[in-house]
Design a binder for these strands. Structure first.
Lengths: 154, 154
DNA sequence: AATTAACTTAGTGTTTTACTCGGTAATTAA
DNA sequence: TTAATTACCGAGTAAAACACTAAGTTAATT
């Protein structure tokens, strides 16, 4: 498993889609502006997401992107694996030095951990995140008093 | 949270320490050979681990490294944070565009997820991994029959 | 004094990031 | 039919991160 800022970009972009894609397709320009990601970089990410059928593109004016599946059928692991490319855990998969030695044990421990992380992220869907986030939005909106948020415009 | 091969190196190295550091200190040369990591790179990683007191070095002949704390008090998150440097999640922490807008919501969803991953890895200690791995070792040793493992040599 | 092994610093080739730029293809509105 | 819009595609690129080499210094053991 691998989790970099690239994966973060993909997840936040997909979250954006999940939140805004209800009424119609969402353009990459919108996401670019919303999330502060360059348009071309988004195009690269979405090429990978499209290859895995996680999004569906619609060309022409009024076009944009939809989720490729319902939000509750897209896990975080799906998204990260699409853009971040699964890396080989260990180098000794079936190699000659894997005969119950110390090295093999350490590596199998890492494999176990890696699988645990993967399973964990497989259980979390976009829909889960959105649902959990919307609950908290209430709390967020009701704390206007705190900090006053620099309304310096007038 | 960030999880790269660098973090993997650190975790496997620490696992090596947890497994072999019972009777005495473990040298970086040993770990280098066991795990297939270059000595100098290990030295860099261990400089970071030592700064966080996750390991303790002993100089001179017969020296090496010990765990800085008992294995059940060292979490995977501790290790990864030591070498992988915590990255900023969102760019809008307290920025002007965080007034309940769409962007803020997406980012707070990412923050939630990131915290979940962190909490998950905080709950897993080196001791947990070792204990769980030793259980499976029995199974591993008793499945000689399966797959035959390409003993093509003769 | 010689050896061991931790510690430190500098440098280096490779890969990954995140991006710009230039274009093509499909769809819509005029 | 033409122009605008948006997805789609590929090459190139500066900067960072990765993983490593090299060449030392310091502290401990023999």
């Amino acid at each position: 498993m691998r989790l970099s800022t690239k994966g973060r970009y993909a997840v936040t972009a997909m979250l954006d889609l999940a939140l805004n894609g209800q009424e119609g397709p969402v353009t990459l320009s919108d996401i670019s502006e919303n999330q502060g990601i360059s348009l071309s970089y988004l195009e690269q990410l979405f090429a990978a997401l499209r290859a895995r059928k996680l999004v569906r593109g619609v060309r022409g004016p009024g076009g944009g992107y939809f989720l490729g599946r319902p939000a509750d059928e897209i896990s975080i692991a799906d998204i990260i694996c699409a853009v971040d490319e699964w890396v080989e855990f260990t180098r000794c998969r079936g190699k000659e030095d894997c005969r119950g030695g110390q090295r093999c044990l350490t590596h199998s421990l890492w494999d176990d951990l890696s699988r645990q992380i993967y399973d964990f992220l497989t259980d979390i869907t976009l829909a889960d995140l959105v649902a959990r986030g919307l609950e908290k939005e209430q709390t967020c909106h009701s704390r206007k008093d705190s900090a006053t948020l620099e309304t310096r415009a007038a």
